[in-house]
Design a protein around this nucleic acid. Structure first.
Length: 930
DNA sequence: CATTCCCGCCATAAG
DNA sequence: CTTATGGCGGGAATG
């Protein structure tokens, strides 16, 4: 929108040829400033960017809707600082203290100019992404306009457009943004991240990525010799379905589908690749995926052994691009897997482990929808057909279709909205954004459930968190019973760590004390509402919906979305795919649609884990295992069905519009039925299978895995089209409970959730470390001019940086607070009994403080930034990823089995501790089931 | 040398 | 046609 945009673009293009300088200057806001020394400098080939200098000068001209422009200088300064620091130090984070000013501070010598070498890192995609993310709240107020203008972003961040596309593509793959139109995207933040992840995991399982990964790993281990042939075969067999490598983009429901237009362009790589990559993490047992394995899988077809190297290389390049973005989202971290042979670059998942899908299904409201569905579905189908990957489809984006969809959707919404959706917002606090609150609540809930206690911990005590984390891991990893839980604890703090995985460890799941307590927590957490049943239900396959989006600004309907999510499964009784489900208890999965059951289900998951006895049995079923089982089952099914269900496997053909279609009536229902049957069958077979599978995997089948048939995922229709999950927003109330528990209650929950980190992972200790942020608010005097002045809507990014620089980072041990500026309610750590000694992880590594923009408007009360702008302070554990910082995190995540983590520096983590591992095979990944 | 991954040419899709 | 997107790979920076 800004006038500048065109100009800038033009300039860019033009400039390209001659010099590299491109970017920067131009956008900087032409109008305002004159000062552009940088331009000249830039041009000069050398990278030096003088920008830093400029910074102060610049006024934040650009502010647009997004949040206002950020002056960018500061940012750049920060950047510089970081970069400077980082190189030397592996950690980016800590150094900040330094200072304020940008350039000089850091460098003793150079003073201002100094930066010349910006080292490549400054330009890295990860950093850029960080800056980008800093501009938007993790959980934006839906009511606000969350539009993102590419031009503005490019300008403000001072980067070429091309780079923004890279970021947007991956964010889009996670549904954190969606494309509205030409230069416009809408920011969704992490609101539907849980759903997205759940969905991706589901899809990933369906694709049997886990198996594929295992095969590849094995193969590689054993090099060519012997076995590979066979193994391969096996896969391929199943692969029939696999064939569908080309999956399409997985879509989410509701909010996001604005992107209708998106699907168009072949949907080639980045977006899809990113999703696949994430899927790999979600299905792999140790949440570690090595680069090459990922590349191989992503290559897709690759069946043949090594394909071109070049292709591989290219793929790897892309993976790095994606990884950098994911890293900035804190979803993954770089690690090294040491196999026998050497260490390979790999990434470890650090995002949320579980995301129960929350979905609400509202069972009701089928009425109108069906009709709608039918239509849409048709359209969708058509569309799908057209759009085959690779080839160009003329049809993509038919306007007509889009419109249709829109209208339908709207209708649907209206219809749906009221009844089911539980709208309770307790939000007294949430005055303005009920919807948002709801979403948040939902999210929270989800997180809580998943993480079980983690959330709680986060605020109060680290120790707790750790424990939980451990327990979770344990479960996954399933240790031997004898093994104590503590093992995991080792606080390894390395950031970039090397993980050594021993191949199979045998483990039995064991009940650990820790686990036991989980249940209790769960129950409390879950309290109110679990949304309906889980499951696959929530997702619907979606073609691409039209880009319908209600008003950006005004969109009330959050609830409606929730409502809309219906699950097909109801009919059949079983949800087609229920990722989460695995209730141990119910052999039959059919959960009635009733919500209560859903809750139970969730609980059950947790409980299952916990309960020792059950744990064993059930564990397998639980997330980790389940996938396997699923895979197996699926494989079986496929084999059988073969022809029968061709439809299913090849998703492409089907497109269902989720929303519209939710009702089971159509194909879905059928599918569901099939699935049930299949499940049973598979289940029976399963045992056999299990063995085989294990063997395939390379794992010794130590234990028989008891599977619950239930878990199996049915294959849902998903594969084909876009999947749309249902938005969870409905849940809300939860937070109340939460709050109460946590000390924070008073503060609007919103804040809490806000914390970026919070959402996802069990926070390693570090999070806590940061002392209370609020205090730190940068004094006006702070070196950065920007801060002082900033009137309103300062760019959050800047603040963040500043804070960091100022040394806000607290020492260890401090309480993590996310208090709003004003109150800063201290959340004292609630005194949770932490089973584990704190020492584990804590280090002060320096948490970072992050300031995120809150939803601008309303939030004010909560906190007010220096300028009066609303700010939320959050402690982050790690900023970006640099390897250097020491974080304990990894250790937790690693399966207890045999992983050892080495710090980047090389000091090994404290011992493998209790991990039991049998070093037989090098391969890390071990499946664990029981 | 290997790993990372930035840069930006240039093919395509959109408008 | 002009733009907007984004695949893709050279090759530079780093390790």
């Amino acid at each position: 929108m800004s006038s500048t945009s065109p100009e800038s673009q033009n300039l860019r293009h033009k400039t390209q040829t001659t010099t590299s300088n491109h970017k920067g200057n131009v956008f900087a806001e032409p109008q305002a400033l004159t000062k552009t020394p940088r331009k000249a400098s830039t041009q000069g080939t050398v990278l030096t960017e003088i920008q830093s200098n400029m910074g102060p000068l610049m006024t934040p001209t650009k502010g647009r809707e997004t949040g206002t422009g950020e002056p960018w200088t500061p940012t750049s300064n920060l950047k510089m600082l970081m970069s400077a620091a980082s190189p030397e130090i592996r950690n980016r984070e800590k150094e900040l203290c330094i200072d304020s000013e940008g350039g000089d501070a850091m460098d003793p010598e150079l003073g201002e100019e100094g930066e010349k070498q910006i080292s490549r890192k400054e330009k890295s995609l990860g950093l850029l992404c960080h800056k980008f993310l800093a501009r938007y709240p993790d959980y934006p107020n839906p009511a606000l306009n969350n539009d993102i203008s590419l031009d503005d972003v490019a300008t403000e961040l001072n980067v070429e457009r091309r780079r923004i596309y890279d970021i947007m593509n991956v964010l889009e793959s996670l549904h954190m943004v969606s494309r509205l139109a030409k230069n416009r995207y809408t920011w969704h933040g992490r609101v539907n991240l849980p759903q997205t992840l759940a969905k991706l995991r589901q899809v990933g399982e369906e694709h049997r990525y886990r198996q594929q990964m295992q095969q590849i790993r094995q193969r590689s281990l054993e090099k060519e010799f012997d076995s590979d042939g066979e193994e391969k075969e096996n896969e391929e067999v199943e692969g029939g379905e696999q064939g569908m490598k080309e999956m399409f983009f997985v879509e989410l429901p509701g909010v996001e589908f604005k992107a209708a237009s998106v699907n168009s362009r072949k949907d080639k790589s980045l977006r899809v690749m990113s999703q696949k990559f994430v899927m790999l993490f979600l299905v792999s047992t140790p949440r570690v995926v090595s680069l090459d394995v990922a590349a191989r899988i992503l290559i897709g077809e690759d069946q043949v052994a090594d394909q071109d190297k070049s292709k591989f290389k290219t793929k790897v390049r892309r993976l790095y691009d994606i990884a950098n973005v994911l890293r900035s989202l804190k979803l993954i971290e770089k690690v090294h897997v040491t196999e026998e042979r050497g260490r390979k670059p790999a990434f470890e998942w650090t995002g949320p482990e579980d995301f129960p899908n929350v979905k609400e299904t509202t069972a009701t409201t089928a009425t109108a929808k069906r009709k709608l569905e039918s239509r849409t579905s048709v359209d969708n189908c058509a569309k799908n057909l057209f759009s085959s990957p690779g080839s160009k489809r003329s049809f993509t984006r038919h306007p007509s279709l889009i419109k249709l969809a829109k209208s339908i959707q709207e209708d649907r919404r209206k219809i749906n909205s009221a009844p089911t959706s539980p709208v309770k917002n307790d939000s007294s606090s949430s005055e303005f954004f009920p919807t948002k609150m709801a979403q948040l609540a939902a999210i929270c809930k989800i997180q809580l459930d998943q993480q079980s206690n983690k959330v709680v911990d986060r605020t109060p005590k680290p120790a707790v968190t750790v424990t939980e984390a451990l327990s979770a891991h344990q479960q996954k990893a399933a240790k031997k019973p004898g093994a104590p839980q503590p093992p995991v604890l080792t606080p390894t703090e390395t950031r970039a760590s090397t993980v050594h995985l021993t191949p199979r460890a045998q483990f039995t799941p064991q009940p650990t004390g820790a686990m036991s307590f989980h249940p209790a927590q769960c129950s409390p957490l879950i309290p109110m509402l679990l949304p309906q049943h889980q499951g696959g239900g929530p997702y619907a396959i979606y073609m691409h919906p039209s880009s319908f989006r209600p008003h950006p600004l005004t969109r009330p309907q959050p609830t409606s979305l929730a409502v809309r999510s219906m699950t097909f499964e109801d009919k059949t009784g079983r949800s087609p795919s229920d990722v989460t489900v695995q209730g141990h208890s119910s052999a039959t999965n059919k959960l009635p649609t009733s919500s209560p059951s859903a809750l139970k289900r969730v609980c059950s998951e947790r409980t299952s884990e916990e309960s020792p006895s059950k744990a064993k049995r059930i564990d397998p079923s639980t997330r980790d295992t389940s996938p396997k089982l699923c895979d197996i089952l699926q494989a079986r099914l496929k084999a059988r069905r073969g022809g029968l269900l061709s439809s299913r496997p090849s998703p492409r053909a089907l497109h269902l519009d989720p929303e519209f279609i939710n009702t089971p009536g159509s194909s879905v229902a059928v599918a569901a039925n099939q699935t049930l049957e299949q499940n049973l069958e598979t289940f029976l077979e399963k045992e056999e299978k299990v063995t085989t599978s294990d063997s395939e995997a390379g794992l010794t089948p130590v234990r028989a895995v008891p599977l619950n048939p239930q878990h199996l995922h049915t294959e849902t229709l998903i594969p084909t089209g876009y999947l749309i999950p249902i938005s969870q927003q409905s849940l809300f109330s939860y937070k109340d409970l939460h709050n109460t528990e946590g000390s924070k209650a008073s503060t609007p929950t919103y804040n809490i959730y806000h914390t970026p980190t919070a959402g996802s992972r069990p926070p390693p200790i570090q999070e806590f470390t940061p002392t209370s942020l609020p205090l730190h608010r940068p004094p006006p005097s702070s070196p950065f001019s920007a801060q002082g002045h900033r009137f309103h809507s300062p760019s959050p990014a800047i603040l963040n940086f500043t804070l960091q620089n100022l040394g806000l980072i607290p020492g260890p041990g401090s309480v993590p607070t996310c208090s709003p500026g004003t109150a800063t309610t201290p959340e004292h750590p609630s005194s949770m009994p932490s089973p584990l000694p704190p020492h584990l992880g804590l280090h002060q590594r320096g948490g970072m403080v992050f300031v995120k923009p809150m939803s601008p408007v309303p939030v004010q009360h909560q906190m007010t930034g220096p300028g009066g702008q609303p700010l939320t302070l959050i402690s982050l554990q790690q900023m970006t990823t640099p390897k250097g910082t020491a974080l304990p995190q990894h250790s937790f995540f690693h399966t207890p089995l045999a992983t050892m983590v080495t710090t980047s520096h090389g000091h090994t983590a404290p011992a493998g501790n209790k991990t039991v591992y049998i070093p037989q095979r090098k391969l890390d990944v071990t499946t664990e089931d029981t």
